[in-house]
Design a protein around this nucleic acid. Structure first.
Lengths: 127, 127
DNA sequence: GCAATAGGGGAGAAATTTATCCCTATCTGA
DNA sequence: TCAGATAGGGATAAATTTCTCCCCTATTGC
């Protein structure tokens, strides 16, 4: 496993939040778990762009940070569920607000984000 | 400059927000600008852990994403100010809420984050 | 026996992000 | 004249994150 070489600074609230939520899929996983997609395979289906591996890694971190719990059912084939802890649940209103902001400003965001990938006035499919 | 090879997916609000706020110092810079630290040198003093370079790079991205504007005063020595755009200002309540959550749960967050760096029961300063 | 399903993990490569180092320009003050 | 402040950029290295590939467990169905 990768081991960090630089220790993060944790001066203010924003620094702390960054440490636990900075990860490409973490916020989305918390959200999907909140919505009831508890099993790893469900999360994967919800987030097909991420590989199984990263999701596992990030779920492990969320667990270490006490935002979710991992429940293992001793059955075969294996069944596992991730659930938000009470602590994790306190994040939901924030995530919800962030998502709403993104939805509200969807068009504008899409426009400014796509600017940087712009240089394709001609659709390659049509060439 | 680095050019991305993979195009991001922008399916939902959270994806979009991620694209514009994902960057180690972006949220903090928006916050400090909001607090009135408008000049690059002020921001640097506020965020001494980041190098001048990254701050410049990330400010440029915030500008491209229309969250801040760059105002250049044609004086010497140079003077530049970054200000939140109206669009950028709509993020402030969210950032504020995130920061507050972090502050409220400070102790717990610090504890769970430090677990991973734990193996130093002895303070190196005292050896 | 073999494939599929369900959940994981390690090694190493690739992508991405940050950090380091060095350079430009002008003005002020010692 | 030289140091320092102010703002910024390019090249390259290092750190970090994510992806790819391959492997393991055990059961059910064919």
């Amino acid at each position: 496993m990768y081991e960090r070489k630089l220790i993060p600074n944790l001066k203010c609230g924003l620094d702390l939040v960054g440490e636990v939520l900075y990860g490409k899929w973490k916020i989305r996983m918390l959200w999907f778990i909140h919505e009831g997609n508890l099993r790893p395979s469900e999360l994967q289906r919800k987030i097909p762009d991420a590989t199984r591996r990263v999701l596992n890694v990030q779920l492990k971190e969320l667990e270490d940070h006490e935002l979710v719990t991992r429940i293992i059912y001793p059955v075969m084939p294996p069944k596992v569920e991730y659930r938000l802890t009470d602590f994790g649940k306190t994040l939901i209103p924030l995530i919800s607000a962030i998502g709403l902001w993104g939805d509200e400003h969807q068009e504008r965001l899409r426009k400014v984000i796509m600017k940087q990938y712009a240089p394709s006035p001609i659709d390659p499919e049509n060439v």
